[in-house]
Simulated assay, not measured.
Amino acid sequence: MTIKEIQEEIIEDFDLFEDWMQRYEFIIEMGKSMPQIKEVNKSDENLIKGCQSKVWLHADYEDGKLLFSADSDAILTKGIVSLLLRIYNNQTPDDILSNEPYFIDAIGLKEHLSPTRANGLLSMVKQIKLLALAHKSKNA
């Protein structure tokens, strides 16, 4: 699936819920079902700066695509990063760099987060883009 198709799917998923309590629960469940990051990848170099909670993000490069793994010490934050990985995992660096996560505004996520969590969300997106850029230039 393309990044755009996955984002449209996420928007449809969130349209099924009547209120933000149900949406928060959905995000938390996504975090719980996210594959675990390897302990070796829970290092300081994989720690995202700018997040209130601890968030680790690791990327492997295989067959021209980035394979992400992540974790957080906060359950809601873990769900948020799992949403981002849902759209960007197993995509090419070019696709990642040319597709902004518009689903965030479409579902109203940023305005339903505290300012520190919203900043953390932006930091996660920035780190995903930086990893894509690094792998693009390294493998060009």
Rank of each mutant, 00 (worst) to 15 (best):
Gly120Asn: 11
Ile107Glu: 00
Leu83Gln: 00
Tyr102Val: 11
Asp105Lys: 14
Lys136Asp: 01
Thr116Gly: 03
Cys51Arg: 04
Gly108Val: 07
Phe103Val: 00
Gly50Asn: 06
Glu45Met: 13
Ser123Phe: 09
Leu133Lys: 15
Tyr24Met: 05
Lys110Tyr: 03
Ile87Arg: 10
Ile48Gly: 03
Phe68Leu: 10
Lys129Thr: 07
Gln22Thr: 02
Ser53Arg: 03
Gly50Glu: 05
Gln91Arg: 14
Ile87Tyr: 05
Gly79Trp: 08
Leu47Ala: 00
Ile75Asn: 06
Asp105Tyr: 01
Trp56Ser: 03
Ser98Glu: 11
Glu29Phe: 04
Asp71Trp: 01
Gly108Met: 02
Ile28Met: 10
Ser72Gln: 00
Asn119His: 14
Glu39Cys: 02
Ile104Ala: 04
Val55Met: 06
Leu121Ile: 08
Trp20Cys: 06
Arg23His: 01
His135Ala: 08
Phe68Lys: 10
Thr92Met: 07
Val81Ala: 00
Val55His: 01
Glu29Trp: 02
Glu25Ile: 03
Glu29Thr: 08
Leu133Ile: 01
Ile128Gln: 05
Lys49Ala: 07
Tyr102Ile: 11
Asn46Leu: 12
Asp71Arg: 01
Leu131Lys: 13
Glu39His: 03
Ala70Val: 07
Leu67Ile: 15
Leu133Thr: 07
Leu113Ala: 12
Glu111Pro: 07
Asp94His: 13
Leu97Lys: 09
Leu47His: 05
Tyr61Phe: 15
Gln127Phe: 11
Lys38Gln: 12
Leu109Asn: 05
Glu39Gln: 08
Asn99Ile: 02
Ala59Gln: 08
Phe26Ala: 09
Asp63Gln: 15
Ser82Gln: 06
Ala106His: 05
Gly31Glu: 06
Thr116Ser: 15
Asn90Asp: 14
His112Arg: 14
Ile28Trp: 09
Ser98Gly: 04
Lys32Ala: 01
Gln91Gly: 01
Leu113Glu: 13
Glu62Tyr: 12
Ala70Tyr: 06
